[in-house]
Amino acid sequence: MSRIGVVTFPGTLDDRDAARGVRLAGGEPVALWHADADLKGVDAVVLPGGFSYGDYLRAGAISRFAPVMGEVVDAAGKGLPVLGICNGFQVLTEAHLLPGSMIKNESLHFLCREQVLTVENSDTAWTREFERGEDITIPLKNQDGQYVADERTLDELEGEGRVVFRYQGDNPNGSRRDIAGITNAAGNVVGLMPHPEHAVERGFGPDGAQGPRSGTDGLRFFTSVLRALVG
């Protein structure tokens, strides 16, 4: 069974939900600790959401220097699948595994809602169980969710097909070009602001086609990586 590491930083909130997503998808979640420079031989890593180090300095800025992140950066360079969700996405940009950065939502309000995303790249390690152009619904909840990068970087991301998810409908936070998630050139590192781990089980997710709280679109992030790992 594939083993997926889930990192806990001080102030991480969604590590248990992420571990549950891994389990429901058929993988074995492995808890990883920020202070240990040890990935315990996992096959992939999830950096979950929350407010690591209270978002002090900048969101994700201090977590980037955690001992475990040195290992994550090395392993990501060698092709290890890494998924950064919300605060995890912020950590990935601060660690320079993904370009750009996040600033406060344009509205200045903390947002919490069910969000429709369009999948624009279904070739990454974390999205291969989606169809390109498919709309999915997962929760969005953040304060610093406005994705920014310079025009050259944005053009590069678009040109190389590295925009993985775009907000559908109203742009919730002012993100450049409605970008909700991106990938690195190799497609093994993916970061997004919305939360797939909160839409993995009927009865607890967003409203879906089969009734209230029936949405489980988030589960396919985890089944995608499990499929990627077995080849």
């Binding site: 800025a61 220097f65 920014v148 990068a149 310079d150």
Partner: peptide, 8 residues
């Protein structure tokens, strides 16, 4: 390297 993020 730390106190600022050159992207923003």
């Amino acid at each position: 390297q730390v106190l600022s993020n050159p992207v923003i």
